[in-house]
Design a protein around this nucleic acid. Structure first.
Length: 111
DNA sequence: AGCTTGACTTTGA
DNA sequence: GTCAAAGCCAAGC
C-alpha cells in the first residue's frame, strides 16, 4: 500500500542528506521533489518527521532564513541551539549569512 | 463529501 | 523596501 507516502519519505531523505553546518529551505526541497509551490507539503511532511528521529528539521528554514518551524519543535529554543551547535549563528530567529550556509539539494545532489 | 488550515513560495502592486 | 493575493497538495474537522 505504498503510493504517495514517498513524498514524506523523500523529504525526510533529503533533509537527512543535509550536511552538518548547512541549512536549506522548504522551496528547495519542494523543487527537488518537483514542485516549488508545494513547499507547504514539505512543512506538512516535517510535521510527520517528528516520528522520524533522524530528521534534522532544524536545518530546514523558510526562504527568508527564519526559523519559522522552531515553534513546532519540542522547545522553540531547541532549533536555534542545534543550529548554533553546528556553527550557525542565529540572530533573532534568523540565520546569519543564510546564503552562505544555504545548501541546495538540487545543486549539491544533482552534481 | 466538502471546507478550513498549514513548519511556504512566488508574483504583482 | 513592504503588503496583498494566488498557487499548491495533504491532513484535519
Amino acid at each position: 500500500m505504498k503510493k504517495h507516502e514517498d513524498f514524506f519519505q523523500n523529504v525526510f531523505d533529503v533533509v537527512r542528506l543535509i550536511p552538518k553546518g548547512r541549512v536549506t529551505n522548504y522551496g528547495a526541497i519542494a523543487k527537488y521533489l518537483g514542485s516549488a509551490r508545494s513547499s507547504r507539503m514539505v512543512g506538512w511532511a516535517m510535521n510527520a518527521a517528528h516520528s522520524q528521529k533522524d530528521v534534522p528539521a532544524h536545518r530546514v528554514v523558510n526562504r527568508n532564513g527564519e526559523l519559522t518551524g522552531k515553534i513546532h519543535f519540542a522547545t522553540p529554543f531547541l532549533m536555534q541551539e542545534l543550529l548554533e551547535k553546528e556553527g550557525i549563528k542565529v540572530l533573532k530567529d534568523k540565520i546569519k549569512d543564510f546564503q552562505k550556509y544555504y545548501w541546495d539539494p538540487m545543486k549539491e545532489l544533482e552534481l
